[in-house]
Simulated assay, not measured.
Amino acid sequence: MKIFNFIALILLTAWMSSCVSSNVTVEEGSNGEFDLQNYSSYEFLDVEVENSHNEDFKLAVDFLKDEINKQLSAQGLAYKDDGAELQINLGIVVEEKEQTRTTSLATDPFMYTGQRRYTWQSEEIVVNKYKEGSLTMHLVDSESNQAVWVGMVSKIIPSKTEKKQQAIADAVNDIFQEINKTNN
């Protein structure tokens, strides 16, 4: 009996670890009756860019739209310049962030240089700087002008262009996996 319980525990642990949750946050109430198959065409709403002179950002937005085009055309939707049934509104935020750590006597011992009133204090020090991008995608029904699905994903943005494109492709893939969950 103990062996059976042990095997059952191992199987339960393996099953639970295979149920990885998505890193896409879906806005509650935005996907009640939504089914992507109810639409035959889509269009992108304009992306307003604060730093319109940033060519890297423009290229990243174009690549993002290309990845979304691939996903939607694979599901049978056609791109239309104007008058599509489904409108896609993209919100993109890029933040510069810092990774920090707390100093300790074990890793950062003080150096006494003869000052009588020297004190050592633990402090936060920056060990890495990076950029994190957040993509929010609103799928809007053109007829009702209401968002039918809203989801957001955040990822660290690599510094190399080819890795940036892979990160964008992964983010779009994550979003469409979540959309397909709501359609099933």
Rank of each mutant, 00 (worst) to 15 (best):
F176I: 00
L72F: 09
K65C: 03
S40Q: 06
I179F: 06
Q177R: 03
S41H: 00
A78C: 00
V94Q: 14
A171S: 15
I125K: 07
I10Q: 02
N184A: 11
F63M: 05
S122Q: 09
K58D: 11
E124S: 13
K155D: 13
L11F: 14
Y39H: 00
Q37F: 11
V94N: 14
K97F: 08
S18R: 03
N180S: 13
M16V: 05
Y79A: 12
R101P: 07
D62M: 06
A171P: 03
S18Q: 06
R117V: 04
I157D: 11
G32K: 04
G133F: 08
L72P: 12
V93S: 13
D56F: 12
W120R: 01
T182L: 01
S144G: 02
I68P: 09
Y79Q: 15
D141V: 01
E85A: 11
N38Y: 03
D170L: 07
L77G: 13
E178C: 03
L45F: 10
T136N: 09
S159A: 15
L36A: 09
S142R: 04
F176M: 05
A171T: 08
I157T: 12
Q87A: 11
N31Q: 06
T136Q: 11
V61L: 07
F6S: 10
V127A: 09
L59N: 15
A171W: 05
T136H: 02
D56I: 01
Y118F: 11
I157V: 13
I88V: 14
Y130E: 07
A106D: 14
L77H: 09
H138R: 05
N54T: 07
V47T: 12
V47L: 06
I92S: 13
S104Y: 08
I92D: 14
N145K: 12
N38S: 06
V49L: 12
K65T: 04
D35I: 02
H53I: 08
E27C: 00
V49W: 01
M152R: 15
T102L: 12
I175H: 08
V20C: 03
L86R: 03
V153N: 00
I3N: 08
G32F: 02
K155A: 14
F44R: 02
A14N: 03
K65I: 02
T119F: 07
T13S: 10
I68H: 02
E98G: 11
V126H: 06
E95G: 12
Q87V: 01
E48V: 08
V94L: 14
Q166M: 11
L12D: 07
V26I: 03
T107A: 12
